[in-house]
Amino acid sequence: MDVDGLKAIASAVCVLAGTAIGYYAGYMTRDSMEVIEDVSPAPEKRLPGGGLKLERALQSAPEAQELPAAPVQPGTVVERRARVVAAPRANKSAGGDGEPTGPAGGVEDCPPVTVDLALIREGEGRRVLAWSPDGRILGGLDVPIIEGIVPASQPWAAGVSYDPFDGTPGAWVERDYGRIRVGVDVYQERNALASGLAVRVRAGWRW
């Protein structure tokens, strides 16, 4: 086997070994740093004081499909949706006891009110969005208690390369478009057929 053949085999071995080591290291690091949130279905639970721990359903569940889409702007990520149905209480000052008395637990002539909620991600922060099919939202308050970790958007990458067999340098730049990654390599080519700068365009799938 000639020298060029040995170089090709050595290059392929280095690429395969580097890919395997990088994949294994990334997989082990990911498992040690990330904990997957439990989003399995769970029943509702009435709490002392009148609060209700909402039922949790999978996104594919029929009751989840009935929820309306959140009215968000393009580029906004919807992380969670919720719906609350509340029955107004009777006014104590008007002679009532403060307990729901009408249909479905509401005040007479005042039907239950539905409020839809969504946890959305905009830029580097999360916000709570509220709207109602039964009227206009007059106000609300969102109070972050624990700062969450929001994945940073870093679509660009660049670096240098080096061919240890020919001793030639190069440079590359990449950009992600969703799960599609495109890039350009500029490197010095030095072999029996050609010598000078060469350009290679590449595209791939990110996961």
Results as ranks from 00 to 15, higher is better:
Met28Cys: 03
Ser161Ile: 02
Gly183Ile: 04
Asp166Cys: 01
Val77Ile: 15
Leu193Trp: 10
Pro48Asn: 06
Leu193Ile: 14
Asp116Pro: 11
Pro68Ala: 08
Ala20Gln: 03
Val15Lys: 02
Gly51Val: 05
Ser132His: 00
Ala10Phe: 04
Phe165Val: 03
Leu6Phe: 07
Leu138Ser: 13
Arg181Asn: 10
Gly18Thr: 09
Arg136Leu: 12
Ala17Pro: 03
Arg136Pro: 00
Val13Pro: 00
Arg190Gln: 06
Leu67Phe: 08
Ile9Thr: 10
Gly49Ile: 09
Thr114Lys: 13
Arg126Thr: 15
Ser40Val: 01
Val3Gln: 14
Ala10Leu: 01
Ser153Met: 13
Arg56Leu: 14
Val72Lys: 11
Ser132Pro: 03
Pro48Leu: 05
Glu55Ile: 04
Ala86His: 03
Ala130Thr: 10
Leu67Glu: 01
Ala69Val: 14
Ala42Tyr: 04
Arg202Tyr: 11
Ala70Thr: 10
Pro144Phe: 05
Gly22Ser: 15
Ala57Ile: 13
Gly140Ala: 12
Ile145Leu: 15
Trp172Asn: 12
Asn91Glu: 12
Ala42Cys: 02
Gly18Ser: 09
Val182Cys: 11
Pro133Cys: 13
Val77Leu: 10
Pro112Met: 07
Asp116Ile: 14
Leu67Tyr: 03
Ala25Gln: 11
Gln59Asn: 13
Gly204Asp: 02
Gln65Pro: 09
Ala69Arg: 15
Ser60Asp: 07
Ala198Gln: 14
Val143Asp: 02
Arg30Ile: 00
Ala8Ser: 10
Gly75His: 05
Tyr162Ile: 04
Tyr177Ala: 13
Ile9Asp: 02
Arg30Pro: 03
Val35Arg: 12
Glu124Trp: 01
Pro68Tyr: 06
Ala90Ile: 07
Val35Glu: 09
Pro48Ser: 06
Leu119Val: 05
Glu99Thr: 09
Leu67Arg: 00
Leu52Ile: 11
Ile149Lys: 12
Gly183Cys: 04
Gly51Phe: 13
Leu54Asp: 01
Asp176Met: 01
Ala64Asn: 08
Gly95His: 08
Asp142Arg: 06
Leu54Arg: 12
Gly49Thr: 12
Asp142Trp: 10
Gly96Glu: 02
Ile120Lys: 06
Pro164Arg: 09
Gln65Cys: 11
Gly183His: 02
Glu189Gly: 13
Asp109Ile: 00
